[in-house]
Amino acid sequence: MQILTPEILTGQLVRLEPLSDEHVEGLRVAVQDGRIADLWYTSAPRPEAMAHDVEAKLDQAAQGLMLPFAIRRLADDRLIGVTTYCHPIPAVPAVEIGYTWQAGSAHRTGTNTEAKLLMLSHAFEEWGCRRVSFRATWFNHPSRRAIERLGASFEGRIRNDRILRTGEVTDTAQYSITDGDWFAVRHHLRHLIASNTTSAS
């Protein structure tokens, strides 16, 4: 099974649409919701750099190195962020989920959890992946907590392996979910989404 094949992934809260130039304006608005780009440890681009960021991701996609998505919130049909499959290892097969950011108003609403459930389900059940990894800047504690909440296992601290947009060199926290973990993780994520939906109703 070939991995990183573009496809629309739809849940109850969000729809993941393969990224295109048509998403630039909506994402420019979304990144200003909560001033996500002001957080030095995130991958969110500044509004004026959004077109360049989308172009760079599409270039990576054309090389078979990434499959980026725009995240659309179904409740109001607004774009709320970006997420990607990246760093594919077809021989295993394995893939990473990363370069994720969501608008401030989407935090703690279940949209990130459902987006990850959609992507993990597709990776394990459609592509037959044996492993899905996640990485976060060591000091990005909100992202690390979100990854841990998914049920991913912490694998270690990788020293001095990334350069931030500020020019600083920093460390990475690495996590993974394997195909052996997937049954329990899937049940856990469905429970989180159901609990969030119930509490919001």
Rank of each mutant, 00 (worst) to 15 (best):
C86N: 14
F139K: 13
A44K: 03
A94E: 11
L192N: 00
H107R: 15
D171L: 03
S153H: 15
A30H: 08
L74K: 13
Q32F: 01
K116F: 07
R162M: 09
C129P: 01
R73Q: 02
T170W: 05
A49I: 00
Q174T: 10
R131T: 01
S153L: 08
R162T: 12
E25P: 03
Q60E: 15
T5C: 02
V185N: 04
A173M: 14
A146P: 00
E155A: 04
E126L: 04
V185C: 05
S199G: 02
L16Q: 06
A75S: 14
L74R: 12
I147T: 07
C129D: 00
V185H: 03
S105Y: 11
H87Q: 14
M66D: 07
T111I: 10
F124M: 04
T137E: 14
G34P: 01
H191R: 15
M1I: 08
S105I: 13
M50I: 10
L164T: 00
V29P: 01
T109F: 09
A173E: 04
A136K: 06
A91L: 11
T197S: 10
V82A: 06
W40V: 14
A136P: 00
D171V: 07
P68H: 09
L120Y: 10
A123C: 12
Y85Q: 05
A146Q: 10
G26M: 03
A173Q: 06
A123V: 12
T10M: 03
A200S: 12
P142Y: 10
P45K: 05
R162A: 00
S201C: 07
A44N: 04
G64N: 08
R15F: 01
H87A: 15
F183I: 06
S153F: 06
A91R: 11
S143H: 09
M1N: 03
D181E: 11
V24T: 15
E25R: 03
R108C: 13
V14M: 04
Q174C: 11
A51V: 02
P18H: 10
T197R: 12
I193K: 05
A152H: 03
R145S: 07
I147A: 05
T10D: 00
L79E: 02
T83L: 07
G156N: 00
E126S: 14
M1K: 12
I193R: 04
G81M: 02
A51L: 02
Y85E: 05
L192Y: 00
I97S: 01
P88T: 10
R159Q: 07
P6W: 13
N140C: 04
N112K: 11
A37R: 06
V95F: 07
E7K: 14
V95M: 09
E7P: 01
P6R: 10
D59A: 15
S20W: 01
Q60W: 09
A75K: 10
T170C: 15
Q32D: 14
Q63K: 15
G26E: 05
A115T: 14
P47D: 08
W127Y: 00
A75C: 06
V29R: 13
A70Q: 04
V54C: 06
D33R: 09
R165S: 13
S201H: 12
G34F: 06
A173C: 14
G11R: 06
